[in-house]
Computed example of a mutant assay.
Amino acid sequence: MSIILVRHGETPLNVARTLQPAETPLSETGLKQAQAVAQRLAGLKIAAILTSDLPRALQTAQAIAAATGAPVTTTPLLHERNFGALRGQPYDSLPYNPLTMTEAPPGGESVAAFQQRVAQAFAQMVELRGRVDGHLAVVTHGLVIRALLAQHLPLGTDAMPLRVGNTSVTICGATPPHALELVDCTRHLDAQIAHDAKSLSGG
Protein backbone atom coordinates (compact mmCIF):
# COMPACT_ATOMS: atom_id res chain seq x y z
CA MET A 1 0.00 0.00 0.00
CA SER A 2 1.08 3.56 -0.74
CA ILE A 3 1.10 7.17 0.41
CA ILE A 4 -0.96 9.33 -1.95
CA LEU A 5 -0.10 13.05 -1.89
CA VAL A 6 -2.83 15.43 -3.06
CA ARG A 7 -2.52 19.18 -3.44
CA HIS A 8 -5.61 21.16 -2.47
CA GLY A 9 -8.04 22.51 -5.08
CA GLU A 10 -7.83 25.92 -6.68
CA THR A 11 -8.50 29.10 -4.70
CA PRO A 12 -9.27 32.62 -5.94
CA LEU A 13 -5.80 33.71 -4.79
CA ASN A 14 -4.10 30.91 -6.76
CA VAL A 15 -5.61 32.46 -9.87
CA ALA A 16 -4.61 35.97 -8.74
CA ARG A 17 -1.01 34.83 -8.02
CA THR A 18 -1.23 36.07 -4.46
CA LEU A 19 0.47 34.71 -1.33
CA GLN A 20 -2.43 33.18 0.55
CA PRO A 21 -3.60 34.01 4.05
CA ALA A 22 -4.24 30.93 6.16
CA GLU A 23 -8.03 31.19 5.99
CA THR A 24 -8.30 31.19 2.17
CA PRO A 25 -11.04 28.74 1.03
CA LEU A 26 -11.51 26.93 -2.26
CA SER A 27 -13.11 28.68 -5.20
CA GLU A 28 -16.08 27.21 -7.06
CA THR A 29 -13.59 25.68 -9.49
CA GLY A 30 -11.56 24.33 -6.59
CA LEU A 31 -14.61 22.64 -5.09
CA LYS A 32 -15.27 20.91 -8.43
CA GLN A 33 -11.62 19.85 -8.60
CA ALA A 34 -11.89 18.42 -5.09
CA GLN A 35 -14.90 16.38 -6.16
CA ALA A 36 -13.02 15.16 -9.23
CA VAL A 37 -9.98 13.94 -7.29
CA ALA A 38 -12.29 12.44 -4.67
CA GLN A 39 -14.01 10.37 -7.36
CA ARG A 40 -10.61 9.30 -8.67
CA LEU A 41 -9.55 8.05 -5.24
CA ALA A 42 -12.92 6.46 -4.48
CA GLY A 43 -11.88 3.37 -6.43
CA LEU A 44 -8.82 2.84 -4.26
CA LYS A 45 -8.59 1.38 -0.78
CA ILE A 46 -8.10 4.63 1.13
CA ALA A 47 -7.84 3.69 4.81
CA ALA A 48 -7.10 7.13 6.26
CA ILE A 49 -6.64 10.77 5.30
CA LEU A 50 -4.03 13.07 6.84
CA THR A 51 -4.47 16.73 5.98
CA SER A 52 -3.40 20.26 6.64
CA ASP A 53 -6.17 21.98 8.61
CA LEU A 54 -6.03 25.14 6.50
CA PRO A 55 -9.46 25.54 4.84
CA ARG A 56 -8.34 24.96 1.24
CA ALA A 57 -6.74 21.64 2.15
CA LEU A 58 -9.39 20.57 4.66
CA GLN A 59 -12.21 21.18 2.16
CA THR A 60 -10.35 18.99 -0.35
CA ALA A 61 -9.80 16.29 2.27
CA GLN A 62 -13.47 16.37 3.28
CA ALA A 63 -14.50 15.72 -0.34
CA ILE A 64 -12.16 12.70 -0.41
CA ALA A 65 -13.54 11.48 2.91
CA ALA A 66 -17.12 11.72 1.62
CA ALA A 67 -16.20 9.63 -1.43
CA THR A 68 -14.08 7.02 0.35
CA GLY A 69 -15.47 6.82 3.88
CA ALA A 70 -11.95 7.23 5.25
CA PRO A 71 -11.43 9.08 8.56
CA VAL A 72 -9.70 12.47 8.52
CA THR A 73 -6.84 13.51 10.81
CA THR A 74 -5.57 17.10 10.69
CA THR A 75 -2.08 18.37 11.43
CA PRO A 76 -0.47 21.82 11.25
CA LEU A 77 2.76 20.12 10.16
CA LEU A 78 1.27 19.97 6.64
CA HIS A 79 0.58 23.72 6.44
CA GLU A 80 1.95 25.67 3.51
CA ARG A 81 5.13 27.63 4.23
CA ASN A 82 4.25 30.63 6.38
CA PHE A 83 5.07 33.82 4.52
CA GLY A 84 4.06 36.02 7.46
CA ALA A 85 3.56 39.68 6.58
CA LEU A 86 3.83 38.89 2.85
CA ARG A 87 0.56 36.95 2.86
CA GLY A 88 -2.11 38.75 0.88
CA GLN A 89 0.42 40.34 -1.48
CA PRO A 90 0.55 39.50 -5.21
CA TYR A 91 3.79 37.81 -6.28
CA ASP A 92 4.34 40.36 -9.01
CA SER A 93 4.14 43.28 -6.58
CA LEU A 94 7.33 42.15 -4.84
CA PRO A 95 10.86 42.94 -6.08
CA TYR A 96 11.94 39.30 -5.57
CA ASN A 97 10.46 35.81 -5.85
CA PRO A 98 8.99 35.06 -2.41
CA LEU A 99 8.77 31.35 -3.18
CA THR A 100 12.55 31.02 -3.44
CA MET A 101 13.64 33.34 -0.63
CA THR A 102 15.61 31.40 1.97
CA GLU A 103 15.32 33.82 4.88
CA ALA A 104 12.18 34.20 6.97
CA PRO A 105 9.88 37.06 5.97
CA PRO A 106 8.59 39.15 8.90
CA GLY A 107 6.46 36.86 11.04
CA GLY A 108 7.07 33.90 8.73
CA GLU A 109 9.27 30.82 8.22
CA SER A 110 12.73 30.47 6.75
CA VAL A 111 13.36 27.67 4.27
CA ALA A 112 15.31 25.80 6.95
CA ALA A 113 12.43 25.97 9.44
CA PHE A 114 9.93 24.98 6.75
CA GLN A 115 12.01 21.99 5.67
CA GLN A 116 12.38 20.85 9.28
CA ARG A 117 8.60 20.96 9.69
CA VAL A 118 8.06 19.04 6.43
CA ALA A 119 10.47 16.37 7.70
CA GLN A 120 8.31 16.00 10.81
CA ALA A 121 5.21 15.77 8.61
CA PHE A 122 6.83 13.04 6.51
CA ALA A 123 7.66 11.03 9.61
CA GLN A 124 4.04 11.37 10.75
CA MET A 125 2.80 10.18 7.33
CA VAL A 126 5.02 7.10 7.35
CA GLU A 127 4.06 6.24 10.93
CA LEU A 128 0.32 6.60 10.26
CA ARG A 129 0.50 4.63 7.01
CA GLY A 130 2.13 1.80 8.98
CA ARG A 131 -0.88 1.63 11.32
CA VAL A 132 -3.66 1.38 8.71
CA ASP A 133 -4.72 -1.35 6.32
CA GLY A 134 -4.79 0.45 3.00
CA HIS A 135 -3.53 3.58 1.26
CA LEU A 136 -2.95 6.82 3.16
CA ALA A 137 -4.14 9.98 1.39
CA VAL A 138 -2.25 13.12 2.41
CA VAL A 139 -3.79 16.48 1.47
CA THR A 140 -1.44 19.43 1.62
CA HIS A 141 0.04 22.37 -0.31
CA GLY A 142 2.24 22.89 -3.34
CA LEU A 143 5.47 23.90 -1.61
CA VAL A 144 5.09 21.05 0.89
CA ILE A 145 4.82 18.52 -1.94
CA ARG A 146 7.84 20.04 -3.69
CA ALA A 147 9.82 19.84 -0.43
CA LEU A 148 8.81 16.20 0.01
CA LEU A 149 9.88 15.39 -3.55
CA ALA A 150 13.20 17.19 -3.10
CA GLN A 151 14.14 16.00 0.38
CA HIS A 152 12.38 12.72 1.10
CA LEU A 153 11.37 11.05 -2.17
CA PRO A 154 13.71 9.77 -4.92
CA LEU A 155 12.99 12.43 -7.55
CA GLY A 156 15.94 14.09 -9.27
CA THR A 157 15.88 17.87 -9.49
CA ASP A 158 15.71 17.65 -13.28
CA ALA A 159 12.36 15.87 -12.98
CA MET A 160 10.87 18.32 -10.47
CA PRO A 161 7.59 19.81 -11.76
CA LEU A 162 7.77 23.57 -12.24
CA ARG A 163 4.45 23.88 -10.46
CA VAL A 164 2.44 21.28 -8.57
CA GLY A 165 -1.07 21.34 -10.04
CA ASN A 166 -4.19 21.87 -7.98
CA THR A 167 -5.53 18.46 -6.83
CA SER A 168 -2.59 16.74 -8.53
CA VAL A 169 -1.88 13.20 -7.35
CA THR A 170 1.62 11.97 -6.43
CA ILE A 171 2.02 8.38 -5.23
CA CYS A 172 5.00 6.93 -3.37
CA GLY A 173 5.83 3.72 -1.57
CA ALA A 174 5.21 3.60 2.16
CA THR A 175 8.62 2.14 3.02
CA PRO A 176 12.18 3.18 2.07
CA PRO A 177 13.25 4.10 -0.55
CA HIS A 178 9.67 5.38 -1.00
CA ALA A 179 9.72 4.71 -4.74
CA LEU A 180 7.59 7.08 -6.78
CA GLU A 181 4.79 5.50 -8.80
CA LEU A 182 3.23 8.74 -10.09
CA VAL A 183 4.15 12.44 -9.94
CA ASP A 184 1.89 15.49 -10.25
CA CYS A 185 -0.91 13.77 -12.21
CA THR A 186 -4.14 15.71 -12.88
CA ARG A 187 -5.83 13.45 -15.43
CA HIS A 188 -9.01 13.48 -13.32
CA LEU A 189 -9.40 17.16 -14.20
CA ASP A 190 -9.60 16.33 -17.91
CA ALA A 191 -12.78 14.35 -17.21
CA GLN A 192 -14.12 17.22 -15.09
CA ILE A 193 -13.48 19.74 -17.87
CA ALA A 194 -15.19 17.48 -20.42
CA HIS A 195 -18.17 17.06 -18.08
CA ASP A 196 -18.50 20.83 -17.57
CA ALA A 197 -18.25 21.48 -21.32
CA LYS A 198 -20.98 18.91 -21.98
CA SER A 199 -23.21 20.50 -19.34
CA LEU A 200 -22.75 23.96 -20.85
CA SER A 201 -23.64 22.67 -24.31
CA GLY A 202 -26.80 21.07 -22.96
CA GLY A 203 -25.55 17.57 -23.79
Rank of each mutant, 00 (worst) to 15 (best):
T51Y: 08
T60P: 03
A47H: 04
F83E: 06
V72P: 06
G88F: 14
A85T: 08
A70S: 10
I49E: 10
T75C: 12
L58Y: 15
V72Y: 10
G88L: 13
D53G: 01
P71Q: 12
A48W: 03
Q62A: 01
A57E: 00
T51H: 10
A85D: 14
I49A: 08
T74Q: 13
L78A: 14
A61H: 11
A48F: 01
A57W: 02
I49Q: 11
K45I: 01
V72K: 11
I46E: 07
I49D: 10
I64H: 00
Q89K: 15
A67M: 02
R56T: 03
H79S: 11
H79W: 15
Q89C: 12
A67D: 05
A70W: 10
H79Q: 11
A57Q: 00
P71I: 09
L86D: 10
N82P: 01
L78G: 12
L86Y: 08
G84T: 12
A70C: 08
L86R: 13
Q89I: 14
A70D: 11
L86F: 13
L50C: 03
L86A: 12
L54W: 10
K45F: 01
R87I: 08
G88C: 13
H79D: 10
A63N: 01
Q59H: 06
T75Y: 06
S52V: 07
S52P: 03
Q62T: 01
D53I: 00
K45E: 14
G84D: 14
V72S: 08
L77I: 10
T60A: 05
I46C: 09
A57H: 07
T60K: 02
L78H: 09
A65V: 03
A66F: 03
I49V: 02
I64L: 02
A47G: 10
A57P: 02
I46W: 08
H79M: 09
A61R: 04
T51D: 03
R81L: 06
L86C: 12
A85V: 11
A66Q: 15
A63E: 02
N82Y: 02
P55M: 10
G88V: 11
T68R: 09
A47L: 08
I46V: 15
